[in-house]
């Protein structure tokens, strides 16, 4: 039997932030399938509020969002003691070195350029945990 085995991992909570409904749906669909608990936020402000009132083990955030972009969100989160060390990945359409340097500057954990394979995302999450 080569069918993938999906072992629920209800212990891990992941916050996914994106202003695009389809991306929110796609990411939560992918990581829920692997058994993780998912909370979604529509932009940086929303994410910051949810991060302050909940505990998350990983945050996946889009870069280009209204109200507060991903880089600003990462910088704000890193100022919160609870999120000083947890993995935060930026998911964006931009992959040039300048943007990555900005990501490093705000202490993001990694950079994912859209579009990306759902399986690759799951593999990456597994590596981070």
């Amino acid at each position: 039997m080569n069918a993938p085995v999906f072992k629920p991992n209800t212990q891990r909570r992941i916050l996914t932030v994106d202003d695009s409904p389809s991306m929110r749906d796609m990411i939560s669909f992918t990581i829920e399938s692997a058994g993780y608990q998912v909370v979604v936020a529509v932009d940086g402000i929303d994410a910051l509020e949810k991060a302050r009132s909940n505990a998350f083990d990983l945050i996946l955030t889009d870069q280009n969002m209204p109200r507060m972009d991903g880089l600003t969100l990462v910088r704000e989160l890193r100022n919160l003691p609870a999120y000083a060390r947890i993995p935060i990945l930026l998911i964006t359409t931009e992959g040039d070195d300048d943007m990555k340097a900005k990501g490093r500057a705000v202490k993001a954990s990694g950079w994912i350029v859209k579009p990306f394979s759902p399986q690759v995302l799951l593999d990456l999450i597994a590596r981070l945990f």
Binding site: T93, E94, G95, G103, R104, G110, P115
Partner: peptide
Amino acid sequence: SVQQHHMRAGEIELF
């Protein structure tokens, strides 16, 4: 801000 011209998987990098 969109640099993609094709639906090819983008780069992934862990800092």
